[in-house]
């Protein structure tokens, strides 16, 4: 039985903001199914009483004084913008 369907792959692609063709969706279904199948070997392990590791070091919140510091200028921030207008990032229509 397959672990992931082509419909699911299309849904995940939408969530990931990727456009996939019908052929790509088919190939990805096959490849992801194989990788997920391989990942399911983790189920051999009993982890009921194991804490998850999010980070390997003992980290606490790193805080600092809320002081005004230098920040990037508008020109710098715009330097790599694909499209801009009046010092702002320009995007296609959001509202119809």
């Amino acid at each position: 039985m397959s672990r992931i369907s082509k419909e699911q792959v299309k849904h995940v692609a939408h969530l990931a903001r990727l456009a996939v063709t019908e052929e790509e969706a088919e190939l990805l279904t096959e490849q992801l199914d194989k990788i997920i199948g391989f990942a399911e070997e983790l189920n051999e392990l009993d982890t009921d009483n194991v804490e998850p590791t999010t980070h390997v070091l003992e980290l606490k919140n790193v805080l600092r004084e809320d002081e005004v510091r230098n920040s990037v200028s508008v020109d710098e921030a715009m330097k790599n913008a694909p499209a801009q207008k009046d010092g702002q990032f320009k995007v296609p229509n959001i509202l119809e």
Partner: peptide, 22 residues
């Protein structure tokens, strides 16, 4: 939006994200 490749093949925001990334 802020840097990197932007696709010209889209006329709304979500499609622009998808096409640019793909």
């Amino acid at each position: 939006v802020r840097y990197g490749l932007r696709s010209d093949n889209s006329d709304n925001l979500i499609e622009m994200y998808k096409q640019s990334r793909s």
